[in-house]
């Protein structure tokens, strides 16, 4: 309940801020051309578009990759993959984005590739951890009861790892919404265009016109994904969490 109040309060603050700035009279008469509602809306949509594309690629590669390195034949790849993910997560997002310019040039594709790479990391890490951290006694019990490899994966490992994998996807999405603002620097689109216009003209109100909706977007997506995560988690796993 309290959490819901905080969440809604914060969202209202961010949206209110955006509305207030966009409706300010004096900023319209000033030197800088303010952004209109239409601008903000279309920027939000293209922002979302970019995030969704990057995330879909990251999920479709990251989840299988994280799971595959837990399989017996590919286990020796786990250390380099997990280590690589750890290193990748230490590297600042700005560096990953900026380096796309010399590598791929400026353009929407460079922006999406950067977001995909950075978004991949939490997904791979959590998919790996979700499967790898399953109590070995559980898997052994399943084997001892005569489940085939496929049955163990389908009936035991995936349902148990699913909440952890979903957390990875949520973290990745929320991070990507934020980093997408910077992706504008290498040719991305979306709310970052508004924010950076504000930054380069040192106009805090314009920065907020782009950044406040971005923050609202991140919080909202995080909340929605958390709900999905919750609804996908078996009640048996939640009871445990409640007792711990």
């Amino acid at each position: 309940m309290r959490r819901r109040v905080i969440l809604i309060g914060l969202l209202m603050l961010l949206v209110g801020l955006t509305i207030w700035i966009t409706n300010l009279e004096w900023i319209k008469e000033g030197v800088y051309k303010p952004f209109t509602w239409g601008d903000i809306m279309s920027a939000t949509i293209s922002h979302l578009e970019m995030v969704v594309i990057a995330e879909l690629i990251a999920i479709s590669i990251g989840v299988p990759l994280g799971i595959l390195v837990t399989r017996p034949g590919l286990r020796r790849l786990a250390t380099p993959v997990v280590g690589g993910v750890g290193v990748g997560q230490t590297i600042p997002s700005l560096a990953v984005i900026a380096i796309m310019a010399p590598l791929l040039g400026f353009g929407l594709n460079s922006a999406i590739v950067a977001l995909f790479i950075y978004g991949l990391l939490p997904i791979v890490r959590n998919s790996y951890a979700g499967i790898n951290n399953i109590d070995s006694a559980i898997v052994e019990a399943a084997r001892g009861m005569g489940m085939t490899r496929g049955q163990i994966a389908r009936k035991i490992e995936l349902p148990l790892a699913l909440p952890v994998i979903m957390t990875g996807i949520r973290i990745s999405t929320v991070i990507t919404v934020g980093t997408a603002e910077l992706a504008v620097l290498v040719g991305g689109k979306g709310l970052g265009l508004i924010t950076l216009t504000g930054v380069f003209s040192m106009q805090p109100l314009t920065i907020l016109q782009g950044a406040a909706p971005t923050a609202a977007l991140a919080i909202t997506l995080g909340f929605i994904l958390e709900r999905i995560e919750n609804s996908m988690t078996s009640r048996g796993l939640k009871v445990k969490a409640a007792m711990a």
């Binding site: 309290r2 905080i6 919404v177 980093t179 805090p204 920065i207 907020l208 950044a211 991140a218 995080g222």
Partner: peptide
Amino acid sequence: EHMADTVLYLAEIMMTVPSLALFGLLML
């Protein structure tokens, strides 16, 4: 306990707010 819950939840949400938003707010 209630205060802790509030503070921790705020902290958790704050981590999801992009830094540029905070910069803008601070400048203002």
